[in-house]
Amino acid sequence: MTKIDEIAQGVLAGDRRKTARAITIIENKLTEAQRLIGSIFPHTGKAFIIGITGPGGSGKSTLIEKIIREYRQRGKTVGVIAVDPTSPFTGGAFLGDRIRMQDLSTDQGVFIRSMATRNYPGGIARATKDAVKILDASGKDVVIVETVGAGQSEVDIIKVAQTIVVLFAPGLGDEIQAIKAGIMEIGDIFVVNKADRENADKATMDIQAMLQLNNKEKKWKSPVLKTIALTGEGVPELIDEIEKHKFFLEKEIERKRSREKAEAELVEAIREKVASSIIVELKREGTLEEFLQKILEKKMDPDSIAEKLLHKKFGKPVQKR
């Protein structure tokens, strides 16, 4: 067994050391990373992936700590990838998100990993998506990705997460205006954190006003919630809303699948009925042999015959694709 196989097996068995090692490989070694992802990929897709984004200082890490606690109470295991920026000048990074979550570091149902962007743009790291797959394969029910402090262009989280929570704090009034083109467009759920502060209601209304336009054509109407991450107020309601969105997505997928299935069935039925009705006719008229002979003698090709028969049956020429 190679080292990569051993690590992959460890991840699938939920081994924490191997899981941690796997993420390091994902970050550092491209060829080995591909092999690793290849071997765990069939075991992914079970976790629900939540993205938490918002401006720096809005309280993302603190809120995530409370979200983890709430999910743990509901009997779920949780993985976290917390992304912080790499300095473009020195290449170093100070990863401080987990300071707010340290009380949960010894809970065996929780796995928290800090990740530097390594100058990858978009608010997450290049390795984030695959690191999520590692935590998913290791058996976590919920995986939370915390982006760097985000504004207009840090929207790559949509490529990773199923539900995106966009966090704001009061006093960002003008900033909300500024970022309406960026993360405002990707939120499934909006949260005004630090709701005990002055202007929380105004911030909520500002967001609601802006969303009215966005929400119009959408099936999922993004709600705006209020939380106080420090005390955990509003967090159970937030989780309920996340679960609602998850249910919505499942229903959407189901609906899409049912539609695809219905379409496939209809196409198959038409094909069957039309083909058999033409063939029955040919047999009755005794012309089937005639056409077969023409094909064998290379006088006509099957395609042209089929088209000719179709014209005969439906009267007008069918547009050729």
Partner: peptide, 10 residues
Amino acid sequence: RDAGMEVIYT
């Protein structure tokens, strides 16, 4: 960090 390392603080 300034020397280019990734530093996690508890």
